[in-house]
């Protein structure tokens, strides 16, 4: 342990510190700033609780995307996937009850993820092209299936999942925490995590070292479906409806923003689930703070863009600091 400490230069230490706490610092600065600016509106437990609750919408969907980007791929169909799975589940819930609706939503999203994975691996169509195509197809299917009519969710169980609470903490927060624990164990304690990092670093080398790259990629796209399914269930519950046109609209950009803001390299090979989670919270904390402070919506977009650039710059700075001594 001492040897490691001796081996670190001040620059490396600064780099590591930045990597570990940079995003947390941004989150705390945002929270502190708005707490001082509008304490009665922002610095309250109900507000904090709801901000974390709404972070789950992007935060859970971003788990699968983090895995995907770690392998050097993208999935831009997640918003449409969320809508299609949501309307399918909601329509089933109307006839068979909320439990079946939730199961169908999860199963449908997972299946759509498998389809994406098969297209990318077996037909060798680049992930960007495949998921761009699916972005249109899934959304169109949602329209066709519902005849462009919203599917209302009135089942008490389903509504409870997104709006209920236990010990004063909303259920989506528990569900998000559980998802992150499972994902963390997969990434850090199971071979799967090593494989996706290896594929992201060098796919060919990973294949030569015996990793079944195609199977891992299919699994990654399937996991995107699983986590998008969870998000669809919670989002449908919070909205009380699944609207084929509006559900998940722009979701892909929010999710990819959270992953990139969280420090996952777009080129693949490195990333952090913790970073993704904090980034999802940064986005919601910032948006809520600016809305409460009555900031003009155009300036809100400017501020969100600036925070994204600052966070990614900090990540670059971290690598530069570490890289200087290597």
């Amino acid at each position: 342990m001492d040897d490691i400490k001796v081996g670190l230069t001040p620059k490396q230490r600064a780099g590591n510190l930045l990597g570990s706490f940079g995003l947390i610092a941004i989150l705390l600065i945002i929270f502190g700033f708005f707490s001082l600016l509008i304490p009665k509106l922002y610095f309250t437990w109900p507000n904090l609780r709801d901000m974390i609750r709404f972070s789950s919408y992007v935060g859970i969907g971003a788990i699968g995307m983090t895995f995907c980007i770690m392998t050097g791929n993208f999935d831009i169909s997640v918003g449409s996937m969320l809508a299609l799975a949501g309307v399918l589940g909601a329509s089933v819930a109307l006839k068979a009850g909320g439990i079946f609706g939730v199961i169908i939503t999860m199963a449908a999203a997972t299946l759509l993820g498998v389809i994406n994975g098969l297209f990318v691996t077996k037909l060798k169509i680049p992930a960007f092209i495949t998921t761009l195509g699916m972005y249109f197809i899934f959304r169109a299917l949602a329209y066709i299936y519902t005849n462009n009519n919203p599917q209302y969710i009135q089942d008490r169980f389903w509504i409870f999942l997104g709006n209920g609470s236990f010990l004063g903490i909303p259920l989506p927060i528990y569900i998000m925490a559980l998802c992150y624990v499972i994902a963390y164990l997969m990434l850090r304690k199971a071979p799967f995590g090593r494989y996706i990092l290896a594929i992201g670093t060098n796919s060919r080398a990973a294949a030569l070292s015996g990793i079944n790259v195609d199977n891992i990629k299919i699994l990654v796209f399937t996991l995107i479906g699983v986590f998008v399914g969870v998000s669809a269930v919670l989002n449908g519950s919070m909205l009380g409806a699944a609207n084929p046109g509006m559900m998940g609209d722009g979701y892909e950009f929010q999710v990819i923003t959270a992953v990139v803001l969280g420090g996952t390299a777009l080129t693949g090979g490195s990333g952090s689930l913790g970073g993704t989670l904090i980034a999802a919270m940064v986005i919601v904390f910032l948006k809520t703070g600016m809305s409460n402070a009555q900031v003009n919506s155009y300036w809100q977009q400017v501020a969100t863009g600036l925070v994204l650039i600052v966070a990614v710059s900090l990540n670059k700075l971290k690598f530069w600091l570490i890289g200087q001594t290597q």
Binding site: I159, N163, N243
Partner: peptide
């Protein structure tokens, strides 16, 4: 509301 059908739980709250 941008999506009037999706506001019922929030209105109830």
């Amino acid at each position: 509301p941008v999506d009037p059908g999706a506001m019922a739980p929030a209105v109830q709250k």
